[in-house]
């Protein structure tokens, strides 16, 4: 187990490092940041001075190492736009995105797992077909469109929920549903497939034969086994959702990290974009690492493979 964990950790670190190189070099292709920083009416001397001040005149590798070193210490530089430390800027916004992500994945799990179980217990029944339809529709629904439709219905027509902002829990309902609905189909399908497999397995039949109650079989034996891959999928989905919440945040004017990333991209605010891409990547890497480790712990076969 320790060997597996170390190997997996090593891979995670290597991936993180590579991602940081990619995001750094990608954004430094965009030209000389000093000119942007110097602003209007800047003379060549001004630009050179800024270049020196920010260290843009150094070789890219040196700049990269410097950036990475500082990033490791939680210093992502200063936002070109807000002239504030990127770390402060992000910390504030990240909490909104994290809240949204956690709510959305919980929503997805709370709807998808029961649906998946119900569908697996009665394959090809009305429940199964409804679940299937919901999942296919979920995959096909453009989230930005879904969000707009929700605003029209729940904010304008019914006046039940606020259309934008993040002040109270009520502000998070619609974004949660929109973002969570995106992750739901995959989780539901996996729950259903896992349950079907487990329900047909010998030990369940044995349990049933021994006269264990249906509910007991379902929850104690079957679900417990079927849920393992679902948990790891949720971790992966959570990572995707954080990176993909930009659309939802944009629609509901949630000033989260995804929205900040989108705005910063438009403003060519490189330090902010760089930091955000790296942070979102790290979340994904962390979640998958944790889920892999959890899986390996639960299922010894994985460790060997």
């Amino acid at each position: 187990m320790l060997a597996f964990a170390l190997k997996r950790l090593g891979l995670a670190i290597l991936v993180t490092f590579t991602v940081s190189v990619i995001s750094f070099s990608l954004l430094h292709l965009s030209g000389d940041p000093a000119t942007s920083l110097a602003g209007e009416n800047a003379t060549a001397a001004d630009i050179a001075a800024i270049s020196r001040q920010y260290g843009f005149d150094r070789p890219l590798t040196v700049q990269y190492t410097d950036w990475l070193w500082k990033a490791l210490h939680g210093d992502f530089g200063e936002s070109y736009y807000f002239k504030l430390p990127v770390a402060d800027l992000i910390a504030d916004r990240l909490s909104i995105t994290m809240t949204l992500g956690i709510c959305a994945i919980s929503f997805a799990l709370l709807t998808a797992v029961p649906l998946g179980v119900a569908a697996a217990v009665r394959p090809n029944s009305v429940v199964d077909r409804t679940a299937l339809f919901l999942s296919v529709a979920g995959q096909a629904m453009p989230s930005f469109w879904f969000g707009l439709v929700m605003i029209v219905i729940f904010s304008i027509k019914l006046r039940l929920l606020p259309a934008s902002g993040s002040e109270t829990w009520r502000h998070f309902i619609m974004p949660t549903v929109v973002l969570g609905y995106y992750a739901m189909p995959a989780i539901m399908r996996l729950t259903r497939a896992g349950m079907l497999e487990v329900l047909n397995a010998d030990y369940i039949r044995t349990a049933r034969a021994k006269g264990a109650g249906a509910g007991r079989v379902l929850f104690k034996h079957a679900l417990r086994n079927a849920i393992v891959p679902v948990v790891s999928l949720s971790a992966v989905q959570m990572g995707f959702m954080l990176g993909g919440s930009v659309v939802v945040e944009a629609i509901f004017s949630l000033h989260g990290a995804g929205y900040l990333a989108w705005e910063s991209i438009g403003r060519h605010d490189l330090p902010t974009v760089q930091a955000l891409i790296l942070i979102f990547s790290c979340f994904y890497i962390l979640f998958t690492l944790l889920s892999d480790l959890a899986n390996a712990w639960l299922d010894p076969r994985i460790r060997v493979g």
Binding site: I151, S155, I156, A163, S164, G165, A250, F252, S253
Partner: peptide, 18 residues
Amino acid sequence: IRTIPDINTQMAELLSGG
């Protein structure tokens, strides 16, 4: 004052009393 970049969301807020 809240920043709502999308005019459409601004409208939604105005119409819903936000």
